[in-house]
Computed example of a mutant assay.
Amino acid sequence: MLIRTHMHDLKDITSDCHYENYRAQCIQTMTTKMNADSRVESPIPLLPLNTPDVETENLIKKKDDELQLNAAQ
């Protein structure tokens, strides 16, 4: 009878507590391993991000203002 009454609690604790602890430990291990293997090149090349110049920023702001004005009408 005790097992039947507390089975739902046992399932919840197993799922919430133990599995989440296991998952967090696996993620931490993978992160540590990836940091240790940082000397290995990434299969996806990282490209530097270009910062937009002032003219581009002004053009984007102007287009946003136009869109907001058109949406208000």
Rank of each mutant, 00 (worst) to 15 (best):
I13N: 07
I3E: 06
P52N: 09
S38M: 05
K61T: 03
Y19H: 01
K33S: 09
D64K: 10
M30P: 00
Q68E: 11
C17E: 02
T5F: 14
H6L: 03
Y22P: 01
K61F: 03
R39N: 00
D65Q: 11
L59R: 11
C26S: 14
K11Y: 02
I13W: 02
P43D: 01
T29I: 11
K61V: 02
Y22S: 09
Y22A: 10
I44Q: 09
N58M: 05
K63G: 00
M30T: 09
L2N: 13
E20H: 02
A71G: 01
S15V: 03
E20L: 08
S42D: 12
Q28E: 15
E41N: 09
M1Q: 02
E20Y: 02
E57S: 03
T32E: 13
I44L: 13
A72K: 14
N21R: 12
A36R: 01
N35G: 08
H18Y: 15
N58I: 03
R39S: 05
L47E: 06
N70H: 12
Q73W: 11
I27T: 13
T51Q: 15
L59H: 04
K61D: 03
V40T: 03
L49H: 14
N50H: 10
Q28V: 07
A24F: 07
E57H: 03
M1D: 06
K61G: 01
N21H: 01
M34Q: 05
A71S: 12
Y19R: 01
N50A: 13
L47I: 10
N21L: 06
A36E: 15
D53Q: 03
N58Y: 00
H6G: 05
E66D: 13
T56F: 03
I27C: 08
H8R: 13
Q25F: 03
D9H: 13
Y19G: 01
N21Q: 07
E20Q: 08
I3T: 13
T31N: 11
M7F: 07
I27F: 11
N70C: 07
K63N: 02
D53L: 02
E20M: 04
N58C: 04
E66Y: 04
V40L: 04
S15C: 04
L59C: 00
A24N: 13
K11S: 05
T5L: 15
V54Q: 15
M30N: 09
I27S: 11
V40G: 00
L10I: 14
H18M: 06
C26D: 13
C17Y: 08
